[in-house]
């Protein structure tokens, strides 16, 4: 579902004398349906950068990047929007929402964008929030007021609301207690079982060992770090 070939990326800082900072070169990797691949490497090696490139958040400088048959490196914004709506889910480390919107609706939103009836979408959102142990009293509140761990769980619920065929997970178990970590790992296993292709960053080695089928060391793709 994800097929990356010889992908490269550099940042050009126009306002700092046009400095060119190469951050990735020759990245190549594949993720099949039902498979979970973990990205490893030291901090700054470009794990999150790679994830963001796959999500279309960062532009690629060269190479190809196919997700579900669409080359994100060359796709139009409109194609990427459709891809994100239907195929590609992303649980980032940060929750970005309109303030004031109730958590329940934040989680249901990906489903509403797909025209799921409101009741059904809210039902699914409620199931996920319940599984992730968000007290029902908080559902009607905006997650912007929540603790870091609660925000992270709302973010995960949102990422799993729609059964995306491809999922990007950036540190999904960070800052979670044992019980919630278990719930998240179960969600990942369920997603794999239904055939989702998952690419993740896990600093939690036990979690990584449990859900990842393969590991890819991103340092290999980092200019200056590659041996």
């Amino acid at each position: 579902m994800i097929r990356i070939d010889n992908l490269s990326k550099a940042f050009v800082l126009h306002n700092q004398g046009g400095a060119v900072i190469p951050v990735m070169a020759g990245a190549t990797l594949t993720v099949h349906p039902g498979e979970c691949v973990g990205l490893t490497g030291p901090s700054g090696a470009g794990k999150s950068t790679l994830m963001r490139m796959i999500y279309g958040n960062y532009l690629a400088a060269g190479g190809s990047l196919f997700v579900g048959g669409l080359d994100v490196a060359t796709a139009s914004p409109r194609q990427i929007i459709a891809l994100r709506r239907e195929t590609l889910g992303y649980v980032s480390q940060f929750l970005r929402v309109v303030p004031r919107v109730p958590s329940l609706d934040v989680v249901a939103e990906p489903l509403l964008a797909l025209r799921t009836p409101v009741d059904e979408a809210r039902g699914r959102a409620a199931d996920l929030l319940r599984r992730l142990n968000i007290p029902e009293g908080l559902w009607s509140l905006s997650p912007t007021t929540f603790s870091g761990g609660e925000q992270q769980r709302v973010n995960i619920a949102r990422g799993f609301a729609h059964a995306y065929p491809v999922l990007l997970l950036d540190e999904p178990t960070a800052s979670l207690d044992a019980a919630n970590r278990e719930v998240v790992l179960t969600l990942i296993e369920e997603a794999k079982a239904r055939g989702a292709a998952i690419l993740g960053i896990f600093h939690d080695e036990a979690a990584r060992a449990r859900v990842c089928d393969r590991l890819v060391d991103v340092a290999r793709f980092t200019p200056g770090l590659a041996a």
Binding site: H14, Y58, L59, I80
Partner: peptide, 18 residues
């Protein structure tokens, strides 16, 4: 011009970066 978060997170033009 481009995808909103791409332009905001990875701006290409000097002015956008500024």
């Amino acid at each position: 011009q481009g995808l909103t978060d791409q332009v905001l997170d990875d701006p290409q033009h000097a002015y956008s970066q500024l």
